[in-house]
Design a protein around this nucleic acid. Structure first.
Lengths: 210, 210
DNA sequence: TAAAATAGCGTACACGTGTACGCTTAAACT
DNA sequence: AGTTTAAGCGTACACGTGTACGCTATTTTA
């Protein structure tokens, strides 16, 4: 029951996952990766791939799950930083931009598969982003005392803006330019926050009047 | 000089373009299209493809250009509707959603290639979207009398939100759901407009004080 | 200790791909 | 009228793909 075998299996499974991750880049999408390439990069015979995944699709879904995990870790990290004080929006954007810089390919995977060719992939990515949005929604609702639907719309818009900025950031090498992008993104998030706060207040006022 | 020949050539060139466009769908991205498939759909021998495009990439860029054209026609259409009166935001969103419904695959092409694998494609799509954004920016600046940079940030955020909503709409069949999405999108655009107007006023106030 | 299970390998196959090459046929030019 | 140009076709090739099948070596189970 020690599981020498299971342990080894898990190890080469990771080898495959990492091989796939490693081959992702600006010029290489997951869907353009072949089973043989991934197996080769992992140092396996093509046919050995099947001992771990029945499909490239199955590997892909695993990758999306991992990417989602990375995203959630990011949020936790951001919350810790926020707890130490500072502008919520600014810290969030900075943290996100750091993710893009250090894990560009993971982020690219999510971006591409979100509008990709496989319904299963799309669904998986959308689910991960929804988690992300929902956590932000909860936070906004309690931190800023917003009306529920308004908080959701704000969270949704904010995530959209940040992901789009992240996507743009992937194509920018110059640090000064990226900083400028961050600044604009922060400003845009403030637009949204302001509009949301106002609508929430208005709705609450209407309720009281009754 | 009449050009019987050139005319015929243009005709089968269109055949190829339309064949490619026709094969695009939720399950089929341009990059997954093969030269042979496109040629076959157009009723040509594979090798005849080369008489018109040196590459699938060249065909792809042509497609992106066409998509951009469609987008610009859309804007003109929206402006005409706006001139007849009505909420600018609401009409814009409605027009956009109609585009998604009638030309889903063209829109999908833009979405996918924006974060796609080819730098040339990405650049081309980004250029088209920039045109779109810039026209909106000009409009906002003069219609709402906004400060320049603020107008740009609003236009940029608005386009991001609308494109994202369009992307979501592609996966929704139910009409009621799509209407709900439109409503939320409109609200989000109002958030942004509100925040932008405020910032613009504040900046102008600072200037006057000097 | 004997038997069963299984990770990994090598071989083999059918298939789809891009594209080089030479040919035909009809338009365009001289 | 004679010559050149060029669209379109068919054949052919080398290559990369997914995966079926049987084998080996080692762990796990009985």
């Amino acid at each position: 029951m020690s599981g020498v075998r299971a342990q080894q299996k898990e190890k080469t499974r990771r080898l495959l996952i990492d091989a796939a991750l490693k081959q992702l880049s600006a010029e290489r999408s997951f869907s353009s990766l072949s089973l043989r390439e991934v197996a080769k990069e992992a140092g396996l015979a093509p046919t050995s791939f099947y001992r771990h995944f029945s499909d490239m699709d199955e590997l892909g879904l695993t990758l999306v799950d991992e990417a989602g995990l990375t995203l959630r870790q990011l949020m936790r990290q951001a919350r810790q930083r926020i707890a130490k004080g500072g502008s919520v929006i600014q810290i969030s954007v900075a943290t996100f931009m750091e993710l893009i810089e250090s894990n560009g390919n993971v982020f690219r995977l999510l971006l591409r598969e979100r509008s990709g060719t496989s319904a299963a992939f799309r669904a998986a990515v959308i689910r991960e982003i929804r988690y992300f949005t929902m956590e932000l929604c909860d936070y906004l609702q309690q931190a800023n005392d917003l009306e529920g639907e308004v908080a959701y719309m704000q969270a949704n818009a904010a995530v959209t803006i940040v992901f789009s900025a992240g996507s743009d950031a992937l194509d920018i090498d110059d640090k000064a330019e990226r900083d400028e992008l961050s600044k604009q993104t922060i400003q845009q998030l403030r637009f949204i926050a302001r509009g949301a706060a106002e609508l929430s207040d208005r709705r609450k006022a209407v309720r009281k009047r009754k």
